[in-house]
């Protein structure tokens, strides 16, 4: 702290906090809409079809959300900085197929080693994206659209028509997606740990806060001496590593991995983040919100099945959700801005 600068006048600082402050900050929570939507969805589905929330039903809901949750956590790191990675589906596919190949070639390799290899592979792919975006100064949307096809192409060339099945992998590996601890499947616990770690990083560390500053105003961040390129590069790297983790888990969860594994997943991931309150132009949102968004999107599929709604409606409903999320966000920020103007006018 600096030399004390005591002012003669008594303090007139508006006192924040208090019970009303707590209620207000709850209402301001960006994740609130997605929490409400999720609660409503589960409640309505349960009322119509009580089988929806049997232990097995809950386990399925969590399993379905797991992989998208991990990808959404990585994607949030990027979207917060006003970047995006569209190649996650392709990265996941490459790593998932790689996992199948490794187990088939070296069945005795410890499972832990496979996780390390998978994440390192993903991190390498993410580093390619990060390098291209920060070195070429081309928008990430375009770069990762390119690598989406490049990585998918590599996967096609590598896999050809070949597929690996669950039978090719150790039983203990597959059990990660079956066994539960306290009702949670093990891979879901992994995802929750990942989300928690990313959440702490983004909220509680200086590099994490730098990501918000970068997305909020990239030029100001540069002027401020924040190492923008380095932070963005590392975010791409981390996103790649998480896509790698998701790829390994995919191989545990699903029966077959091949040339088309993970195709189209990037849009679900971005949708999850947006629905979860992550601003697409960066600067605000949380990884918790994105994870909840992922849970909401995957739960809708199960819900609609439980409600016997035609599956074809599913995509339309996801689309409506995205639009709703954006409109809610826009309206909320306009209302806040208006309130601020009014309170300012009173202060003067």
């Amino acid at each position: 702290m600096s030399s004390a600068l005591d002012h003669k006048k008594p303090a007139t600082t508006a006192a924040p906090g208090g019970a009303r402050g707590a209620a207000a900050s709850l209402l301001r929570l960006r994740e609130l809409p997605v929490i409400i939507a999720l609660a409503l969805l589960v409640l309505v589905t349960y009322l119509v079809n009580p089988l929806f929330l049997t232990p097995q039903g809950v386990k399925d809901l969590l399993l379905n959300a797991t992989i998208v949750m991990i990808l959404a956590a990585g994607q949030t790191l990027l979207i917060i900085t006003r970047n995006i990675d569209l190649s996650v589906g392709s990265m996941l596919g490459l790593v998932a197929f790689g996992t199948g190949s490794i187990f088939s070639a070296m069945p005795d390799l410890p499972i832990f080693a496979v996780f390390v290899i998978g994440m390192a592979f993903g991190a390498l792919l993410g580093a390619v994206n990060g390098f291209l975006v920060t070195a070429a100064k081309v928008p990430a949307l375009v770069i990762t659209l390119g690598t989406l096809y490049v990585f998918r192409g590599l996967n096609n060339a590598w896999a050809g028509g070949k597929q690996y099945f669950a039978g090719d992998r150790p039983d203990a590996f597959g059990a990660l997606s079956v066994d539960t601890v306290l009702g949670f499947p093990i891979i879901t616990l992994v995802a929750i740990l990942v989300v928690a770690a990313v959440a702490v990083y983004m909220a509680g560390t200086r590099p994490g806060r730098d990501l918000y500053a970068i997305g909020s105003d990239p030029d100001a961040a540069t002027a401020f001496g924040i190492k923008v390129s380095k932070r963005v590069f590392l975010a791409f790297l981390a996103n790649g590593a998480l896509a790698g983790l998701a790829g390994v888990l995919y191989a545990s969860r699903f029966n077959s991995v091949g040339a088309t594994t993970g195709t189209g997943m990037e849009l679900t991931v971005v949708a999850a983040a947006v629905v979860g309150g992550v601003a697409i132009f960066g600067g605000s949102g949380t990884v918790t919100g994105a994870a909840l968004g992922a849970l909401l999107l995957t739960t809708i599929t199960s819900s609609l099945t439980a409600l016997r709604v035609d599956k074809f409606w599913q995509q339309a409903i996801v689309g409506v959700l995205i639009l709703t999320a954006i409109i809610i966000d826009r309206v909320a920020s306009l209302r806040t801005a208006k309130k601020l103007r009014i309170s300012e006018a009173r202060n003067v």
Binding site: A4, L5, D6, H7, K9, A11, T12, T13, A14, S25
Partner: peptide, 12 residues
């Protein structure tokens, strides 16, 4: 802000 004698909410 107290020292500066201005009422700005630091949390906004």
């Amino acid at each position: 802000f107290e020292r500066l004698g201005v009422p700005i909410d630091p949390t906004r």
